[in-house]
Design a protein around this nucleic acid. Structure first.
Ligand SMILES: [Mg+2]
Length: 272
DNA sequence: AGTTGTTTACCGATGA
DNA sequence: TCATCGGTAAACAACT
């Protein structure tokens, strides 16, 4: 990663690309991830050049965050307030700026298309799983699917009570067996070379009111300390017909990666 | 209304 | 030289 600079560039433009500057900010943060506003702050504090024309270079920086695979979003935990996601580096991009920090890298970091296909498959399974959950919820409590004015707290208590009583129709696989359970769902066929499928956004519609979008992928271990504060896979009981956002986690292994654990962070939106 | 994030497009710079 | 990397502008969706 680019070095911290004791050198002051004054009003001169520092010899770093936006990618370098962003990586610098991220690597200097305690948890190796920052919200967008903190990336701004770091750059402006370190380099006076960027205290002017903020709308322009911040637009460029946002473009870099989205465009480059080396930057991935990490969803905020529900407990933490905040506007956007955290941004971190893809673990395989951590040594991207090994030899100094030049304006231009040898190669632009890209995630293998095969990996993206793997994510797509997993996403389809999770989508099917969420549909299963939604259908099951609707079957058990069809009245909850009717419009709006449901008492979410009441629904929560009803279901958590049934769950505590271990009523079989309410039970879900434990978290430890969840991955296998999700894996048992069918995946989507390979992406076809039609215009529509190539143009289609990476959003899979599980059911009418459930959208799932890949938020980030990374491969840190639980022990690495950088692991974000994720929320466990929610009970289907939590998916009341109110707008909610979850960050379920799913593990899978990718070929040639030995001890690394890949995590998909996926935002699921349920709306009434 | 301002922020955050995605995407397309164009062009200059740069490295192999 | 040529493929690609980086900077910039801009349209736009979605969220707070
Ligand atoms: Mg990205």
């Amino acid at each position: 990663m680019p070095r911290p600079l004791k050198i002051s560039y004054g009003d001169q433009k520092p010899p770093y690309s936006y990618i370098s500057l962003t990586a610098m900010a991220i690597m200097h943060s305690p948890q190796k991830m920052l919200p967008l506003s903190e990336i701004y702050r770091f750059i402006m504090e370190q380099f006076p050049y960027y205290r002017k024309n903020m709308q322009k270079w911040q637009n460029s920086l946002r473009h870099n965050l989205s465009f480059n695979d080396c930057f991935v979003k990490v969803p905020r935990s529900i407990s933490k307030a905040g506007k956007g996601s955290y941004w971190t580096l893809h673990p395989k991009a951590f040594d991207m700026f090994e030899n100094g920090s030049l304006l231009r890298r040898r190669k632009r970091f890209r995630v293998k298309q095969l990996d993206k296909d793997l994510i797509d498959n997993k996403l389809a399974k999770i989508s099917a799983y969420s549909r299963f959950i939604m259908d099951k919820t609707n079957a058990l409590h069809p009245q909850w699917n009717s419009l709006g004015s449901l008492n979410a707290a009441l629904a929560q208590s009803v279901i958590s009570k049934a769950y505590a009583q271990k009523k079989p129709e309410y039970m879900l696989p434990s978290h430890s067996s969840l991955n296998a359970f999700i894996e048992s769902f069918p995946s989507r066929p390979k992406r076809e070379f039609t215009i529509e499928s190539l143009i289609a956004p990476d959003i899979v519609t599980a059911s009418d009111n459930c959208k799932i979008q890949i938020s980030s992928i990374y491969n840190r271990n639980w022990e690495s300390g950088i692991y974000p504060d994720l929320v466990r896979m929610p009970h289907f009981l939590q998916s009341t017909p109110h707008y909610q956002s979850y960050s379920p986690s799913v593990t899978h292994h990718i070929m040639h990666s030995r001890q690394e654990t890949y995590f998909n962070n996926i935002n699921m939106y349920f709306e009434a």
